[in-house]
Amino acid sequence: MHTKHAKHPITYGLLAEFDDQHSLVDAAHRAHVAGYTKMDAFSPLPIEELHHAMALPTTKLPALVLAGGLTGALGGFLLQTWVATMAYPLNIGGKPMFSWPMFIPVTFECTILGAALTAVFGMLALNGLPQPYHPVFNVPSFALASRDRFFLCIEAEDDKFDLDDTRRFLQSVGAKEVSVVED
């Protein structure tokens, strides 16, 4: 397979380069309006409007974090209940074994732990990180995406994708340079 790729590289998509974030947001929005769906934008800084410009689906992360927090809360509370009433019952100040007010601080901590771990690892998983290889790395100027350049990549898998038409489209929306991305 590898040698075949080397001989006949498959086109992954077209990568358009922009000078500033406004041109990128504008181009991404126009690509969305033009009907492109399989595309991705790359920027050295977070751009909040980009999400709306490309009409990306809302992230599932908040729901995951809520679930993680609730799991942590329940786990923490049940663990303490089990320890205090069954595994290692101790009489403290003559209070009932199931003294739930005492369990609240640890339950709270476990909620935060569950929510925070889900937020970090959920974010990585949903983003598909870590990702040691991505076809856009094959375009030399892409290294600037972590410095001062902004990129929009329309993938060849997109139904509307056509090497010449899409290239003309990207140039028409203000791309400084359009390169073919090979896989």
């Binding site: 100040g93 209070k95 007010p101 005492m102 609240i104 601080p105």
Partner: peptide, 12 residues
């Protein structure tokens, strides 16, 4: 609120 309650409840 809960801090005040917990301390007083556990001190009893």
């Amino acid at each position: 609120s809960f801090s005040q309650y917990l301390l007083i409840w556990s001190g009893n």
